[in-house]
């Protein structure tokens, strides 16, 4: 990992609570909370509202802990990128050791609470998801392979699985499909972003796909993942695990995702003057897509339950 100098502007001991909160990557956490909640709400069975709240809280806090560990490990890289140099550790607002300890405390606290309140299976999967993000993705894959985001995408795919298992207590096909949907969604989502911030990644030596394989290959791969994602999202309906409300919405949302991915996949960048509008549009839509897909899953479950 390149050792870039940190730029301390504030005495580390003076960190505010907001700085610690920023370590948890709150914006990423919203998607984690939402997909976890949808997994919990769409699962068959019942859970006490207090335990449901605790399960979602543990998913959120665990994700926050993993994010803090990620920021601790990548402080040097973050210092070298325009998008991340103002984060609490590279800007010097939080001491590195404090960031690490905060991440460990949140991770351990969330797993132990999950084990006591919900069960050991859910706690084990939560621990696995934290380990996957903080070590498998951040430490191991990200600096080594351009496939980092493909395999590392699994880390973000755990929340609906954990939410579902909090209700049912066991692993079935449907939560595994939800896991796979987020797994396949991550590469086109992240590579769309990587296409318009690739200069930053190249500068700090991170082998992101556009930097290593080139733009052309990345664009084709974005389209390929979007094409595979479409039938995968419709699969729960086809297998009878979800109703027509979900099936039709998943098909329509997925079709739009393929169209926007095709606009990115089949075009060639016109150089430095290119504003990368299709890439930015795909990135924004991909976030909306995932929110909508999981929201529809919950609506479908409510409609099906009401009709039964």
């Amino acid at each position: 990992m390149p050792q870039l100098p940190l730029s301390p502007t504030v005495e580390p001991a003076s960190a505010e609570w907001r700085d610690f909160f920023a370590l948890t990557k709150p914006r990423v956490m919203t998607l984690v909370i939402f997909t976890g909640l949808c997994g919990l709400l769409a699962a068959p069975g019942e859970i006490h509202p207090m335990l449901a709240f605790t399960a979602i809280l543990c998913i959120a806090v665990g994700a926050g802990g993993a994010a803090a560990l990620n920021m601790w490990w990548e402080a040097d890289l973050d210092a070298g990128m325009k998008r991340t140099r103002h984060r609490p550790v590279p800007s010097g607002r939080i001491d590195r050791t404090a960031a690490r300890d905060f991440g460990v405390a949140l991770s351990c606290g969330s797993v132990i609470t999950m084990a006591l309140a919900i069960g050991w299976l859910d706690a084990g999967i939560l621990a696995l998801s934290i380990f996957y993000y903080a070590w498998v993705y951040t430490v191991w894959l990200k600096p080594r392979t351009p496939q980092n985001i493909v395999i590392g995408g699994g880390a973000g795919a755990f929340p609906p699985l954990i939410g579902w298992i909090a209700v049912t207590g066991h692993v079935t096909l449907m939560p595994v499909l939800l896991f796979l949907i987020i797994f396949m969604w991550t590469p086109p989502h992240f590579w769309a972003l990587a296409l318009f911030v690739q200069i930053d990644y190249a500068k700090v030596g991170i082998p992101m796909m556009p930097v290593v394989a080139g733009e052309r290959s990345t664009r084709y791969q974005i389209l390929a993942y979007a094409v595979v994602l479409l039938p995968l999202t419709v699969l729960p309906w086809w297998l009878g695990l979800a109703g027509p409300v979900y099936g039709i919405a998943a098909f329509a949302l997925g079709l739009a995702f393929v169209v926007l991915s095709a606009q990115v996949g089949l075009r060639t960048s016109s150089g430095d003057a290119d504003t990368m509008k299709p890439e930015k549009r795909l990135f924004r839509y991909s976030i909306l897509y995932l929110f909508a897909l999981f929201a529809v899953l919950v609506v479908d479950h409510a409609v099906t339950s009401a009709g039964a």
Binding site: A13, S14, E16, W17, F20
Partner: peptide, 9 residues
Amino acid sequence: ALRARQRSR
């Protein structure tokens, strides 16, 4: 300012 930040934390 330092005391205020410590208090908020």
